[in-house]
């Protein structure tokens, strides 16, 4: 459904943050986008979300050039969640989630009862229905992540792009959220691409793992193909051991 063809991007004409990336995503995939800091993960997601426009290459959604889509139509198809969206003024969870319906609204229209139903459905899916009337600044980090995920889901996108949804969470919440992403793919048949530094969790839940380094995609495969000491050393720059228990491969840093 989404096809990136030799796209390159640089901020202000400096070094290339994205350097000739070609990728193809199919419906119903859960894709983990990994790589060291500054390898271009966020930039790639922003390009796919049309927040940034690559200087060269083409991005096609449903075989149509992304720039030819109307902004609102594109936003209906693609739900993007930036890293750490922080409101500056207090806001209720339900208002955050229902604002995910914005691409479906006309210029002067307000959210209808159906939009609120969608929002509540998304909240339930994220196991956050009880938080609806609470204010965001009174919530824990994990609760907030679920609210923002619900917001993306409320827009009923077919492609979901999440920038580091697992960061700044404790282990229990990381697991919860990773499992939730799996559920989303299974229940909605949307494609989910999320960037993450949580290699083991990503490998445990994702169908496909991408490894980026210096703006290039250096690995693209099934988690078991990526989770090897060689990839860790070459792409991430650390010494690791692969430990296999109960049919899963885990990467453990060598101390």
């Amino acid at each position: 459904m989404l096809q990136l063809d030799r796209i390159s991007f640089s901020y202000g004409g400096g070094t290339l943050a994205i350097d000739g990336v070609t990728l193809r995503f199919e419906p119903g995939e859960l894709v983990a986008l990994t790589g060291p800091n500054g390898s271009g993960k966020s930039t790639l997601l922003k390009c796919a979300a049309r927040v940034l426009v690559p200087q060269s290459g083409s991005i096609r959604l449903d075989d149509q050039e992304s720039r030819q889509w109307l902004p609102k139509a594109y936003a209906r198809a693609v739900g993007y969640l930036p890293q750490n969206p922080e409101p500056v003024v207090p806001i209720r969870a339900i208002d955050v989630v229902v604002s995910g319906r914005a691409p479906w609204l006309g210029r002067f229209s307000w959210e209808s009862a159906r939009d609120y139903e969608e929002a509540e459905r998304a909240l339930r899916l994220c196991d956050a229905a009880h938080l609806a009337e609470r204010y965001l600044d009174e919530m824990s980090g994990g609760e907030r992540k679920r609210i923002f995920l619900a917001r993306v889901l409320a827009g009923e996108p077919r492609l979901i792009l999440l920038d580091e949804p697992l960061t700044a969470l404790d282990v229990a919440h990381v697991q919860q959220l990773a499992a939730l992403l799996r559920q989303v793919v299974e229940r909605t048949t949307a494609t989910v691409i999320f960037s993450s530094h949580e290699l083991n969790w990503s490998a445990a839940y994702a169908d496909r793992m991408l490894v980026m380094n210096r703006g290039r995609v250096v690995m693209d495969g099934r988690p078991r193909e990526v989770m090897t000491p060689e990839v860790m050393r070459d792409a991430f720059g650390f010494d690791a051991e692969a430990v296999t228990t109960a049919g899963r491969t885990w990467i453990v840093p060598r101390v």
Partner: peptide, 18 residues
Amino acid sequence: NDLRLFSFGEEDASGRGV
């Protein structure tokens, strides 16, 4: 309807089709 989406930043607004 566009301005209110600025509350989570410009990138977020852009991602909502603004």
